[in-house]
Design a protein around this nucleic acid. Structure first.
Lengths: 211, 211
DNA sequence: TAGCATGTAAAGTGCTCGTTGTACTTTACC
DNA sequence: GGTAAAGTACAACGAGCACTTTACATGCTA
């Protein structure tokens, strides 16, 4: 993967330049959106010339696809690791709540990288109709689906142990994600008491799926 | 409200033209996004000339603000009415679940109008950083906040009656909204079993807030 | 019926952008 | 060190856009 929109590449292009372009394009696409982001701005942010961008990618759309795929894959990997770290040591029903809170807090703590990724995903959603449905599908498969599956695995495990009563683990994983990411006010403006909202969301989840 | 970006209007402009422009602009903005939407396309969709648009609105940004405000207000009014119709007759704890399911099904059934509105909101979110935070705040105040308050009122009522155990009705309203609007797969593609997801979401909500 | 503000039509202005061609310089590898 | 590919700077092209200008049509009001 990642070669989708690349140039034929008869010769060998420098990988560091390609990485710099993808990194710079992520910043610009995330903050400006697909249409507003200009190739010139991306070139400046990447420290390369515009011409070099077209040596690596067929056009703007192909570059965007590569950026989305790379960002989704990297973030999903980090998130799956978060799931393992916080949820694999649970040894009883009483530990579920605190473990979920710890996971959700870490999950929603916005590092600069994941903040850019979140903004990029917002752009993907808004532009979904204009960029081909395969981009959205590829993003979903490379990113959210993996985290959702990792979450669902642990939930199914806890259900099998009799600690929760879950008939559809995938659905429960979605419910958990939506509850802990709930905020008052418009999206994008994180409230000061976000941790309290996370605790409340986990509380409703645990009560809702209690055995 | 709604006069924010209007032209000085020394004379009296025809209101029907203005309404046609706002209606046409809603369609174009919703499907194409703010940047892609061209004044020419909006003029064509509205059945007016581009010059007339500039007689009614100072510029593209003012037109967008007017469209967002109008759409948010109209949709919020319809949604508050839905809350009243489905949730005001509840006379016991056992009726809560079915009433909420009925409300959520009606709420999420996408009429053409609310579909355009939903797409428009997606554009607002993605473009929030580029259009001034007051637009987002105005949308939030004119739309979602009113529905959220209407929901929270009923929930608080049921809690006071001892049918639910809710300490923060506003937060519970947000939780309800996020649970019933949960779907598998990427957003935008409604699954065929959406009603089952609604029922499951209401179920988790009622269990989570059971007295 | 005269007058005037509003709407329409079409062309024009100035700008930005995606993309490509070209000539030159740098880098990597034998 | 030589060679071929990769990168850079720069200009150009063509398209599309927001917005304006100008000239003309239309309908209401006095």
């Amino acid at each position: 993967m990642g070669d989708d929109g690349d140039r034929p590449a008869s010769g060998r292009l420098r990988a560091d330049k390609r990485a710099a372009i993808v990194a710079g394009a992520l910043e610009v696409f995330a903050s400006d959106g697909y249409v507003r982001a200009s190739i010139g701005a991306i070139a400046e942010a990447s420290g390369v010339s515009t011409r070099t961008i077209y040596k690596h990618f067929a056009d703007k759309s192909a570059l965007f696809d590569a950026v989305v795929a790379a960002s989704a894959g990297r973030v999903a990997e980090a998130e799956v690791e978060l799931v393992e770290r916080h949820l694999d040591g649970v040894a009883g029903a009483a530990e579920i709540g605190p473990a979920l809170v710890g996971f959700a807090v870490a999950w929603l703590r916005g590092s600069a990288e994941s903040a850019a990724h979140r903004a990029l995903i917002g752009q993907v959603r808004a532009e979904a109709a204009h960029l081909g449905s395969d981009v959205v599908a590829a993003w979903w498969a490379a990113g959210p689906v993996r985290v959702q599956r990792a979450l669902a695995d642990r939930l199914a495990q806890w259900s099998a142990a009799g600690w929760l009563r879950i008939d559809d683990a995938d659905r429960a994983a979605v419910h958990l994600g939506r509850l802990v990411s709930a905020t008052p006010g418009p999206p994008g403006a994180a409230p000061p008491d976000r941790d309290a909202w996370i605790v409340a969301g986990v509380d409703v989840f645990v009560r809702g799926y209690r055995a």
